[in-house]
Design a protein around this nucleic acid. Sequence first.
RNA 1: UCUUCCUUAGCUCAGUUGGUUAGAGCAUUUGACUGUUAAUCAAAGGGUCCCUGGUUCGAGCCCAGGAGGGAGAGCCA
Length: 462
Amino acid sequence: MKRTPINELLKSTDLGKEINVKGWVRTKRGNKSVAFINLNDGSIIHGIQIVADLTNFDENLMKLITTGSCISVNGTLVQSQGQGQAVEIQATHIEVYGSADAELYPLQKKGHTLEFLREIAHLRPRTNTFGAVLRIRHAMAFAIHKYFNDHGFYYIHTPIITGSDAEGAGAMFRVTTLDPINPPKNDKGEVNYEEDFFGKETNLTVSGQLEGELAALALSKIYTFGPTFRAENSNTARHLAEFWMIEPEVAFNDLVDNMDLAEDFLKYLIQYALEHCNDDLEFLTKMYDNELLSRLRFVVENHFERLTYTEAVEILKTTDHKFEFPVDWGADLQSEHERYLVEKHFKRPVILTHYPKEIKAFYMKQSEDGKTVKAMDVLFPGIGEIIGGSQREEDYEKLHTRILEMGIHEKDLWWYLETRKYGTCPHAGFGLGFERLILFVTGMGNIRDVIPFPRTPKNAEF
RNA sequence: UCUUCCUUAGCUCAGUUGGUUAGAGCAUUUGACUGUUAAUCAAAGGGUCCCUGGUUCGAGCCCAGGAGGGAGAGCCA
């Protein structure tokens, strides 16, 4: 008999129908004559109740059906006699695919701490929490592609191995096939990367933006969505060494267009989650964050506050609120400053623009005032910076001068500069941290709990 | 990397002034119960007190070093 997913069975009204269901046992309880098995197959957060009349089942078979075991059940879909569920399965035959030793299986019927579940990341997808997070993660990935496809963007695959470190976005992981014990040396006694696989030093990408710009200056509207690697020794609830990033880049867009895109895009994604992930969001709201659903709705329904860095500094300087770090024009804002603006002052998402050029990347469009660049950071409550982007400097001379000023090796960027030499145009884009989006949408507190197998300093298990 | 807190049973945690045989709840096992919902009730089993060294008649507890984890910060997405 063909398996029916549990999400279909739970909404079925086809009482009396013979069905087959397969999944993993969450709990088993009962007495001498009847057993109740809560079975989950990951198709939905809810399990279906299997009722086994023990006069029909061998005692030894029933002993194998433990928390964590995997079974296949044939039976009849019936109206439930008990409270708590509309329908249940009256079992006629049960096959055990794999038992799970109850003395050893680490997942219990009771709740576990998220820290403990991180240590058993190979089993945590079987929990309600991670099932919900992973289904939402999928829905967001799908919605990202759908949004861009529906808006005329093309998905570009930028390289994961890169030969330049000029992007300046952070420390990089080296990629090499050289012998780590006895690498070939050159005349100066340095490692000779000319003998390495690519004939030069290579690293894992820290951003697909520069290559994304090349594609945007041909296809007009593009986006990337791929893994990104940062070798920073960051130990926080918001950083990973390996994470996924979405980077749209649009020719002919200016900073305002860029902000409009970022706001519309984020609201679309959150709205998509509200419409397609309701069961999972309700579970997370109930178990972890009472205000999750109302916060998501609030973000969708209200405009993002837009102001310049200079205006933000004025607000921070005139408030009575005491900060640990001083606020001064020219210095980057501290986390506490961003949090104050988002969570206390405006109480909504904030887009800050026109930062001092000294604290931003070389490729950002220089403003007419000569002091700021057309950068934008989208700040979210509880997350901080969820998007960072800018209009790009399309003027060859200005860009070239800025590269020299910042001491960047121009020979690594000849190809990037050529786009400004041949048919340059105004363009803008941004980067959205996928896991930070998932943090916000799920209400989880630690970024290690929104990616299946987190990579962080001192941790690459699984 | 910095600040700070933590590490005791499978899990979550108590553990007094340094003192005999280290505790609880849950989980597990066994038993009771003819419809349970994290079932309930009863009993039992279960310990490298993170590691190394030191102080002491005696260390889960005090000291030093190390490892791992949490929270906050920096860097950023």
